[in-house]
């Protein structure tokens, strides 16, 4: 029998590596949409989770809509409004970035296996996947010049944290609280999008190297 959970986790790792190698912003946003959907589906495939109540159904539908449609749509709009289609302009090259991703993955495996953490049965793979996703998110924020890739890096970091919080932890009874976290994420991306548009108006570009006036 196919283990759907492992398939999804491998697909998430694939989106992580793809995002490191992608040269076009629109493609990067699409990869993030796919990753959002995959991450939202993960808890459904775990033992003991599932669509137990009406609240749970509403929550997962809302999460799929926000992570898979709403946030990517806002990002695409931001990309269009600042009229940058290609050129992510890396500080670290694409090939080196993919190599970094593989290094993150190996270190995550090594860390999970060597720490002997007290984890529930069969959840080690989720931890590996989550740590790799978080590390890559932080790396993307540092290694790319365009301000919008920093927003994407932040989203990826959040996806990784979500994997830890929702899939790894068994406290999943309070959907209202998780919805609050999701709402914060949505508003954060909205606020960042608005600032991005303003940066583009003020500087005629969204290059983070332009943002260096304030210092001591």
């Amino acid at each position: 029998m196919i283990n759907f959970l492992e398939v999804i986790l491998v697909l998430i790792l694939l989106t992580v590596l793809l995002s490191l190698g992608s040269t076009r912003l629109v493609a990067l946003v699409r990869i993030m949409a796919l990753q959002g959907v995959l991450v939202s589906l993960t808890p459904l495939l775990l033992k003991g989770h599932g669509l137990a109540s009406l609240g749970a159904v509403a929550f997962y539908v809302a999460m799929l809509a926000i992570k898979g449609v709403l946030i990517p749509a806002m990002l695409i709009r931001a990309v269009k409004s600042v009229s940058i289609q290609r050129e992510i302009e890396p500080f670290v090259g694409y090939h080196a970035s993919i190599l970094m991703g593989l290094i993150f993955l190996l270190s995550a495996v090594f860390m999970t296996n060597s720490l002997h953490l007290s984890l529930p049965e069969g959840r080690a793979l989720i931890l590996i996947c989550a740590v790799t996703t978080m590390a890559t998110g932080l790396f993307l924020m540092l290694a790319r010049k365009k301000a919008i890739t920093q927003v994407i890096g932040y989203l990826m970091l959040e996806n990784g944290i979500y994997l830890i919080g929702n899939a790894l932890s068994q406290h999943h009874s309070l959907y209202i609280v998780e919805f609050g976290v999701l709402l914060d994420l949505l508003v954060a991306v909205m606020v960042m999008g608005i600032i991005l548009t303003n940066i583009n108006h003020a500087f005629d570009d969204v290059d983070t190297t332009l943002l260096g006036q304030l210092k001591d």
Binding site: M134, L138, M141, A147, Q150, Y154, L157, E158, I161, I164, G165, L168, S169, H171, V181, A188, V191, M192, I195, N198, I199, A202, L211, G212, Q213, L214
Partner: peptide
């Protein structure tokens, strides 16, 4: 504008790490 961008991004990332910490505590 620069101050706002730094504020939102640095604090959001920082606070995201605090969420991770809170999840570890619930673990």
């Amino acid at each position: 504008l620069e101050a706002t961008w730094k504020y939102v991004l640095i604090c959001s990332v920082g606070i995201a790490l605090a969420l991770l910490g809170s999840f570890f505590v619930t673990l």
